[in-house]
Design a binder for these strands. Structure first.
Lengths: 158, 158
DNA sequence: TTTAGTGCAAAATGTTTGCACCTCT
DNA sequence: AGAGGTGCAAACATTTTGCACTAAA
């Protein structure tokens, strides 16, 4: 259970290593910019927009451009080390791929994003898909919620 | 079960009436353009992009602009007579709101979109949300699938 | 040294808006 | 007559791309 919201040093170095391996295999280069971006992603809460990531990385090296952030994120997704998510608001968000699959519960009152996972639902999905003669390749399951309590409970994680 | 893929005459006139009622209540006007757009949406397969709708409507009146299509769709969503969906591909898709809620199964091989509904999953979602002290206001559940069979089975509906 | 990567600015996309003109009611 | 609607083009927001320059390997 190393991989939840803030992103520990261990998470950072893990992601960094995996990314370097991927780059090596593809005969691509590891660069200072890529390392900074991967590090920022690994340290993020897991639902960062490109803008947020760019802003963060700029505090370390103010010359890094948007294009490099986009290009590096695309590589990370290819490497299956990050996942791209589109919530309703028109901009993509990225998260370091944390081993196990999970889905999202989004509080529309306070904007917080929680993660959840339910084996029973996963099984039912598989069943539905197979019944219709398909193979499940991917899925997205978002629960948009409201907290009635005026002070939204910001408990973290699953 | 009137409301599935192609959109019968009855579906068209139903949606048209509801939209006229909405416009009346809001002191807004019914126009030739709006009627054409609503009709095209009602006749659609239920997952049309703005571009497709615009193209369709243009065959009836070649002067209708994109802006009017966007504005009318926004009204329909406000009226809760249409739903907007964002699948992964960067453009919004719209569907006439067909009474009962349903989710989507998207074949990434042939691009076809099927609908599904599973009460058991709906119940589990509710449970998960309530356990965490929230109220479910909305959800999105998409299953991305592949058909192994080279000729994708295009069976329609649930 | 060679090939890939970077930053910038321009282009591409999808959507929204300002405005002069038009049309329902 | 007058509020609201339309079409167009320009503005926007996000993401992608072309290109000259830089830097890993």
């Amino acid at each position: 259970m190393s991989s939840s919201l803030p992103g520990s040093d261990a998470d950072v170095s893990d992601l960094l290593h995996r990314f370097r391996d991927f780059l090596g295999q593809q005969r691509l280069r590891s660069t200072r910019q890529r390392e900074l971006i991967v590090e920022a992603l690994a340290r993020s809460t897991g639902h960062v927009s490109v803008e947020e990531l760019h802003r963060e990385v700029r505090t370390r090296d103010s010359s890094i451009g948007y294009a490099t952030v986009y290009r590096t994120l695309k590589l990370l997704v290819e490497a299956r080390l990050a996942a791209i998510r589109h919530f309703g608001d028109g901009q993509a968000r990225f998260e370091p791929r944390q081993g196990a699959h999970h889905d999202h519960m989004i509080c529309d009152t306070c904007g917080h994003i929680f993660e959840f996972h339910d084996e029973e639902i996963e099984r039912l999905q598989e069943k539905l898909v197979r019944e219709r003669g398909f193979e499940l390749s991917n899925h997205r399951h978002e629960l948009h919620v409201k907290c009635l309590d005026p002070n939204c409970p910001r408990r973290s994680g699953a």
